[in-house]
């Protein structure tokens, strides 16, 4: 899809046209599975948190593992980024999706795959044309929250139609410039780390979370509760799916993390935060987190995607 984006930009450019945007000067690689180069950070600097990313780019890391128990992977991960520079720069754009399927018998992975792809397709179809239009005269740009709502509704319809017995969590993050628009159903989580603090952005749509909010369970009880993975909201559940959608501005240098419960139910939040702080790179952090979940038993598929804003 990113190639598609690059190709499109190239075709849009015609000599002599003043209104069309110039070619991007660089592109980030969403499929980066190679660790990023070390940035000369000394080990003793780890409390200074971050290797400085290049100041004008997203830095993306991602990792996925089937875990120690399961034989197949029901998690899906998508990451797209795009940028355009020149006289009228386009805002950086990133779309990151994690879906964790359920239903067994291949239904889970089909559900998560269809949901992730549908969400990405609807978002990109609605956002890309305006992204590449001249911001000085384009005032027909869609509402990003509505696009996300539309996309998650379409993902739900498609899963209901094609995998009626399956279901999936679905968490999508669209970043345009420094604005984050997050849509969310299920218990995949999104966190943001900024100014040294880690904050959970999503609310689990799970029975135990609801019981915790009602004061009926403590965190410790919830962590071992036999029904801790029972969801009351999931893509594929049929009519009336209500997704959480929030928009929020990310401060420069913030890190967005999206991960499946294969990570967060095994590795406590403060350890996630610590691993991220002590990792030499975003990609390294993703790999360390997956390793930590596997070392804790890895009973489920583990997926994590991380993006750091320029800052």
């Amino acid at each position: 899809m990113f190639d598609f984006l690059k190709k499109w930009m190239g075709q849009s450019r015609s000599p002599g046209s003043e209104t069309l945007p110039p070619l991007p000067s660089s592109s980030s690689d969403p499929d980066a599975t190679v660790p990023l180069p070390e940035l000369g950070l000394r080990a003793s600097d780890h409390d200074q948190i971050w290797p400085r990313p290049s100041p004008t780019r997203f830095t993306v890391g991602l990792a996925q593992h089937v875990g120690q128990v399961r034989t197949h992977n029901e998690d899906v991960l998508l990451a797209f980024t795009g940028e355009l520079r020149g006289l009228e720069p386009m805002p950086h754009i990133g779309l990151f999706v994690v879906a964790d399927g359920m239903g067994g018998h291949l239904l889970g992975e089909r559900a998560s795959g269809i949901a992730g792809r549908t969400l990405a397709r609807v978002v990109l179809e609605n956002v890309l044309p305006s992204l590449l239009a001249d911001p000085r005269s384009d005032y027909e740009r869609p509402s990003l929250t509505e696009v996300m709502e539309l996309a998650i509704a379409e993902a739900n319809r498609t899963v209901v139609r094609l995998v009626p017995e399956g279901g999936t969590t679905l968490t999508g993050a669209l970043i345009v410039g420094d604005q984050l628009i997050l849509c969310h159903v299920g218990d995949t989580r999104a966190y943001v780390i900024s100014n040294g603090r880690m904050e959970q952005l999503t609310r689990d749509h799970s029975l135990v979370q609801r019981l915790k909010e009602m004061g009926q369970l403590t965190d410790d009880e919830a962590a071992v509760h036999p029904q801790r993975s029972v969801l009351y909201r999931a893509v594929g559940q049929g009519e009336g799916l209500e997704a959480d959608v929030i928009s929020r501005r990310l401060s420069p240098g913030s890190i967005l993390i999206i991960c499946s419960d294969g990570l967060w139910s095994l590795v406590p939040d403060h350890i996630i935060h610590q691993i991220v702080r002590q990792s030499p790179s975003i990609q390294g952090a993703c790999e360390s987190l997956v390793r930590a979940a596997n070392e804790a038993g890895g009973p489920d598929n583990i997926t994590v995607v991380m993006v750091q804003l320029p800052g």
Binding site: P91, S130, P135, R141, L144, T145, V176, G177, Q179
Partner: peptide
């Protein structure tokens, strides 16, 4: 309308 101040993108309405 909620608009991103730097880009003019509509966040919600």
């Amino acid at each position: 309308y909620a608009l991103d101040a730097s880009s003019g993108w509509r966040l919600w309405q």
